Amino acid sequence: MDDVRWLTDEEQEIWRAYMTSSVEFNAYVDRQLRRDSGMPMAYYEILVRLSDAPGRCLRMSELADASLSSRSRLSHAVSALEKNGWVHRRPADGDRRGWVCALTTAGFDALAAAAPGHVTAVREHLFDVLTTEQLAALREIGRAISAGLRSECETARAEDAGGCAAEEGPC
């Protein structure tokens, strides 16, 4: 363990501040969405990704990547969203193994109803508490962290995909 680059006291303080704020903010937004819209943040994110997609539908693999979810976790979430009538799955055209997830009108309506409260929560507890300079720094920090994790995330997604019997079917 001699080669471990231990965190300095200042680095520990930064790490803990980042983790605390990240966990608290995500928990707050999730609670707000559950309370006001009856859906967790993960479901909201799936609905947003579908609403932004051409034709309001995506292949399951693309939806997993876009929503930063494992295919297994996405499959469970999509099953719950199907029960609500907010999405439906169908085989991909011309691909017997692929599946497409589509946003229904009811799903779009649920998203539209949830969006004002969600945006208000994000605005009040992120954008309104930071200066313009802090927001610019936060954007750059987020991009740098994501870039530093890109290859590890790609490897994890490839491993996740390898665990499915069918490329995009429910695992």
Results as ranks from 00 to 15, higher is better:
R150V: 02
S21H: 12
M19K: 12
S79T: 14
H118M: 08
A121P: 00
G55K: 13
A156Q: 07
F108K: 04
R16Q: 13
Y18K: 08
A144W: 02
E159R: 15
R49E: 15
H76T: 10
R34A: 13
H118L: 04
W15M: 10
I14G: 03
A106K: 14
G94I: 05
A144H: 05
F127Y: 10
N84K: 15
R123V: 14
A137T: 03
R5V: 09
G55F: 10
V100H: 06
R5F: 08
G142P: 00
A102R: 15
A42I: 10
R34G: 01
L7G: 01
H125C: 00
F25D: 00
D93W: 02
S72H: 13
G98R: 10
L7K: 12
R73L: 10
G98V: 02
R150S: 07
E167K: 09
F25H: 01
L74P: 04
S75F: 07
N26E: 15
R31L: 09
L50P: 00
T132F: 04
S151N: 02
S67D: 05
R157M: 13
A53G: 10
T20E: 05
A66R: 14
F25I: 00
K83M: 07
G148P: 04
G162Q: 07
G94D: 10
H118T: 03
S146D: 13
S37C: 08
R143M: 14
E13R: 13
L81A: 09
L50R: 03
D128E: 10
S70D: 04
T132P: 01
A137F: 08
I145H: 07
A53Y: 11
I46G: 01
F108Q: 05
D128Y: 09
I14H: 06
I14E: 05
S51I: 00
Y44E: 00
G94T: 04
A92K: 06
K83W: 06
W86D: 02
G117L: 07
V48M: 15
A158N: 10
P170F: 12
A112V: 07
G117S: 11
R49A: 15
R90Q: 12
S70L: 07
A66L: 02
Q32D: 08
R139L: 09
W6R: 06
A136Y: 05
S22T: 13
E124A: 11
A114H: 05
E159M: 12
D95H: 01
E168H: 03
E124R: 12
R31D: 12
L47I: 00
A121V: 00
G142V: 02
T105D: 15
G148F: 06
S151T: 08
P40G: 07
D30S: 08
V100D: 03
L135T: 00
R89H: 02
G107A: 07
L58H: 05
G107R: 06
F127H: 01
G85S: 04
L58G: 04
P170Y: 11
E167W: 14
G162Y: 07
A115M: 11
T120R: 15
G117M: 03
A113V: 02
L33S: 08
A156R: 07
T120G: 10
R150D: 11
T132V: 06
P91D: 12
V48D: 14
A144S: 11
N26A: 15
L126F: 07
S22K: 14
L47S: 05
